[in-house]
C-alpha cells in the first residue's frame, strides 16, 4: 500500500501538526515515511505545502510525482486548488472553507468554492467553525485530519493514539478536545462523502 498526501496551507497555519500526527500513526504501524517540508522564506505568510508519503515498502523520492497524490489536505480553500495538478484521478481533495486573506487580490469565495465543487471527490468543511463549536478553536487542524481519516488507509484508533502521544504533554483536557475535534471531522466526512 501507499498513501501520498499533499498538505497545503499558508505559512504559519501549522500544517506540520497534521503531518506529525499522521507520521506518528504511520511509524506506529511500522510503515515507511518521507515528509518533505517547506522552510525559509515562504514561511512568512506565503503558500506552503508538505509532501507526506507513507508506504509499506521503501520510499525513494521525497517528492510526490505530479498526478499521483492520493489526497490534498488543505487548511485553506484557495490553497487546496494550487495543488490540483498533483492529485490523481481517483484522489480526494479535503479542504477547510475558511479563507486566509493576506493578499489584496484574493478571489471571490464563490469562485473558489465553485472550483472545489468541480472536483469529483471532495470534502469541504468549515473546520474553524466546528472547532469553535467544540470550544476548542485551536483544534481546527485536527478537525481537518478527522475529515481526511475515512480516506486514509489506516485504522482510526491509530490516529487517536497518535493524538494522545503528541498532545499528552499538554494534559488530559487538551488531548480530549483534540480527540473530539478529530471525531467531529470524521463524522462530517462520513455524512458528506
Amino acid at each position: 500500500m501507499k498513501i501520498d498526501i499533499i498538505l497545503a496551507g499558508v505559512g504559519g497555519q501549522g500544517i506540520l501538526s497534521i503531518a506529525a500526527t499522521i507520521g506518528m500513526a504511520a511509524v506506529d504501524m511500522g510503515l515507511h515515511l518521507k515528509q518533505a517540508e517547506v522552510h525559509g522564506m515562504s514561511q512568512r505568510g506565503g503558500d506552503v505545502q508538505s509532501n507526506l508519503r507513507l508506504s509499506n515498502r521503501e520510499i525513494y523520492s521525497d517528492l510526490i510525482p505530479r498526478g499521483q497524490a492520493d489526497m490534498i489536505l488543505s487548511v485553506e480553500p484557495m490553497e487546496s486548488l494550487r495543488y490540483i495538478p498533483m492529485l490523481s484521478k481517483s484522489g480526494w481533495l479535503i479542504t477547510s472553507t475558511e479563507p486566509f486573506v493576506n493578499i489584496p487580490n484574493y478571489p471571490p469565495m464563490e469562485e473558489v468554492m465553485a472550483e472545489i465543487r468541480k472536483q469529483p471527490h471532495h470534502i469541504a468543511l468549515n473546520a474553524d467553525q466546528i472547532a469553535k463549536e467544540l470550544e476548542s478553536p485551536k483544534s481546527a487542524n485536527m478537525v481537518m485530519l478527522g475529515a481526511a481519516s475515512p480516506f486514509l488507509d489506516m485504522p482510526f484508533e491509530k490516529l487517536e493514539k497518535a493524538v494522545h502521544t503528541i498532545f499528552g504533554k499538554k494534559g488530559e483536557e487538551v488531548v480530549s478536545k483534540n480527540i473530539a475535534a478529530l471525531r467531529a471531522g470524521r463524522e462530517f466526512a462520513e455524512k458528506n462523502r
Binding site: R44, G45, P65, G67, M78, I84, P85, I103, P107
Partner: peptide
Amino acid sequence: NPVIVAKALGFPVDEEKCIPEVVAPRPPS
C-alpha cells in the same frame, strides 16, 4: 523531480491538469 526524470526516460507524462485560474499567487510577506 520524478516527472522530469520520467520525461528524460521517455515515459509518457500526463500534464492535463493545470492550476485553476482562480488561484492567485501568494508570495511571502
